[in-house]
Design a protein around this nucleic acid. Structure first.
Length: 351
DNA sequence: AAGGCGGGGGT
DNA sequence: ACCCCAGCCTT
């Protein structure tokens, strides 16, 4: 539309017309992602669910290869339900938040047992690993239910649209109600995807591109002039440093690994034997058994709530010691969480 | 309401 | 060095 002179300033006191403008933009600029079939076709609930779980707190570039790996290997929820626990944990290795993988399998088995997916957000939320966001997303996208899907992107978009300045935890509740109110009758799934696409490609965290934004006319933060100021969140706590050691024990070309307990950090994953990881200065590490351990170096790894500095110790053993765990040929080691993959690589390849 | 829980990329 | 991300679960 060409106009001469000054653009009309759309009113932004009322968001009721926002969904229509956003959907028109989505029809032209929505992303083509592997778990989205061509616009207008019905989404596969299994793929929608799998993608939503994988993309919780995870970027699309990081998650996409895992999505393909899983759908190639387990094309249906029934196939996934029949997989062994260790197979799924190994396939998930490197993606993080490993409770997601344990809950993924629990959920798949519940669905296979039931024989079908529940189709409402309320019912979906009862399944393991499915919280308020994911329940809304699956209900809207896979089952065309009138549900909102409010994730971090939508939080940010609406924090700006409404220029929310109050306590962030409280504002998020208000915001959620507002999004639900705006879900359009006929296209709840497209609305959910459109808001996410807008947040990912236009209303980005540090450099929102208001010039190409289809809903900038509704945006109070843009009107104020500094949309990137929003959302206004409370300061984060500093991360403590923990230190410890990981042990690479080698006997006749095999390395000793241990399966970690289901609860807690890296739960359910294979790992190297370690000392305790403790906050503060370095102290003498405690090996899993007596051997001539050689210090190879140090790896650093950042977890959600602490930084880890891990001394890597290696021993080539003349006899197989009595130790918990299982032995794996060096060239068949797979499925380690990143911190252990780093330590293993350093001990074997020196880098 | 707060904290545990991964990992990688952007600036 | 700091930020962020298609959050959920437990306490």
């Amino acid at each position: 539309m060409m106009t001469t002179g000054r653009q009309a300033v759309p009113k932004h006191e009322d968001l009721n017309k926002l969904p229509a403008d956003l959907l028109a933009w989505f029809d032209r600029h929505g992303r083509d992602l592997p778990w989205r079939m061509a616009l207008g076709e019905r989404r596969d609930p299994y793929r929608v669910w799998l993608a939503e779980i994988m993309l919780q707190q995870t970027t699309i570039p990081h998650g996409t290869p895992y999505f393909h790996k899983f759908t190639d290997r387990w094309p249906s929820v029934e196939a996934l339900a029949a997989a062994k626990d260790e197979e799924v944990m190994t396939a998930w290795a490197g993606l993080g938040y490993y409770a997601r993988a344990r809950n993924l399998l629990k959920c798949a088995r519940e669905i296979a047992e039931r024989g079908s997916w529940p189709e409402t957000a309320v019912e979906l939320k009862k399944l393991p690993g499915i919280g308020p966001y994911t329940a809304g997303a699956i209900a809207a996208i896979a089952f065309n239910q009138p549900a909102a899907a409010v994730d971090g992107n939508v939080d940010r978009v609406f924090a700006r649209l409404l220029a929310l300045k109050g306590d962030w935890a409280q504002e998020k509740k208000r915001l959620h109600k507002e999004v639900e109110r705006l879900v359009p009758e006929g296209r709840p799934g497209d609305f959910a995807e459109a808001l996410m696409d807008l947040g990912a490609t236009v209303c980005t965290p540090t450099k929102p591109n208001c010039l190409i934004c289809p809903v900038s006319g509704y945006c109070r933060a843009k009107a104020e002039g500094e949309p990137e100021r929003y959302p206004i969140k409370p300061p984060k706590k500093a991360k403590p440093v923990r230190r410890g050691a990981a042990y690479v024990a080698i006997h006749k070309g095999d390395v000793l690994l241990q399966r970690r307990p289901d609860k807690g950090l890296l739960g359910g994953m294979a790992g190297l034997p370690t000392s305790d990881w403790v906050e503060g200065e370095r102290s003498d590490p405690v090996p899993p058994f007596k051997a001539s351990w050689e210090e190879i170096g140090e790896v650093r790894h950042v977890f959600t709530h602490f930084d880890l500095r891990l001394t890597v110790q290696r021993a080539d053993l003349p006899r197989r010691p009595k130790a918990d765990g299982f032995w794996v040929p060096l060239d068949e080691v797979e499925g380690l969480p990143s911190v252990f993959a780093k330590a293993f690589r350093l001990a074997i390849a020196g880098k």
